[in-house]
Nucleic acid binder design. Structure first.
Ligand SMILES: [Mn+2]
Ligand SMILES: [Mn+2]
Ligand SMILES: [Zn+2]
Ligand SMILES: [Zn+2]
Lengths: 160, 160
DNA sequence: TGCTAATTAGCAAGACTTGCAAATTAGATC
DNA sequence: GATCTAATTTGCAAGTCTTGCTAATTAGCA
């Protein structure tokens, strides 16, 4: 699934209706590479469809996830991020700006624990945490780099 | 840091006090292999120290994280789970019961994205999702296994 | 053109976590 | 041991994110 055309098919297959709201959200989500939050999407959707509700955005995202059209990503920075790319890929998270970018990792799919052999693995996810080039650059230019905080701590601190 | 003895040192080093609450939480956390939530810990702590507040549990966990004594784990199932093990290890999450177990993965630390080379990596995390042996067993005994839901969907559904 | 089940919008409420301020206390000082 | 004070704990209000509920609306079908 990638084209809006087959979106109708996917929805019908699930006994669901193809509403303007659903079409818009699906479209916005595929135009967006940033792994946005529901709120992010809501803002974008509102611009093109004034009156659309945040509730509908959440509902649609949940449906699409159920239909296997997208995945949720939780990096512990508050709101859930969503990802229209359900193919084989992984993520690099910048601990400074929170950006999540797609990355590919050779051999990731075949990684296995050296212990816990009695566990049926359905999925392997790799997450890299670090600093993106943009943040690294601005950081060198004398920004106040304080003592190291864990990614989570940082995420939580930035909420304030 | 592992022993309660050095806990005092760690706290002092940070200009902090060694309170009974902090000692208890630290102890409980090291006795616990389940990657419990703050609420889980609060329940355990309350048993031994009636009157301790949930607020204090959260506060202490945050402090310990800042001090590098523990890490937070977010698997998208609601509450944050905490992990007293800050050493090199990874996790296997059961999509059925939510259990998180520690696993080791050979070569995980040296994994690198094949793309995004302009990213300074501080940490590599691997998460396996699947079904634990306990769930797999009970599942075979005719339990009602419904259609596949994503891990997150399942986590959210189980909240209701 | 009507019918009806599905969907939307709006708002209340739930789950988890943090802010705040008054009361308490660990640890230093005398 | 008694005193002092900054740090800590509590309790509760409030914040953030997400979902429950239901009246009004609408897509898709006859
Ligand atoms: Mn992605
Ligand atoms: Mn662990
Ligand atoms: Zn960055
Ligand atoms: Zn299980």
């Amino acid at each position: 699934m990638q084209s809006p055309a087959s979106l109708a098919v996917a929805y019908r297959a699930n006994g669901r209706k193809l509403t303007p709201q659903r079409q818009l959200i699906f479209q916005l989500m595929h135009e967006n590479e940033t792994h946005p939050t529901a709120e992010d999407l809501y803002a974008q959707a509102s611009a093109q469809m004034p009156g659309i509700s945040l509730r509908t955005v959440y509902q649609t995202l949940n449906e699409l996830a159920e239909m296997g059209e997208l995945q949720f990503i939780e990096i512990g920075s508050g709101a859930t991020r969503f990802d229209p790319n359900v193919g084989d890929h992984h993520h690099a998270v910048c601990d400074s700006c929170g950006q999540i970018r797609d990355v590919h990792v050779r051999g990731a799919a075949t990684l296995r624990p050296t212990d816990s052999t009695d566990f049926v693995i359905n999925e392997v996810g790799v997450v890299f945490r670090g600093i993106c080039s943009a943040c690294e650059t601005s950081r060198r230019k004398g920004s106040t780099q304080r003592g190291a905080k864990s990614p989570v701590q940082q995420a939580k601190a930035s909420k304030k």
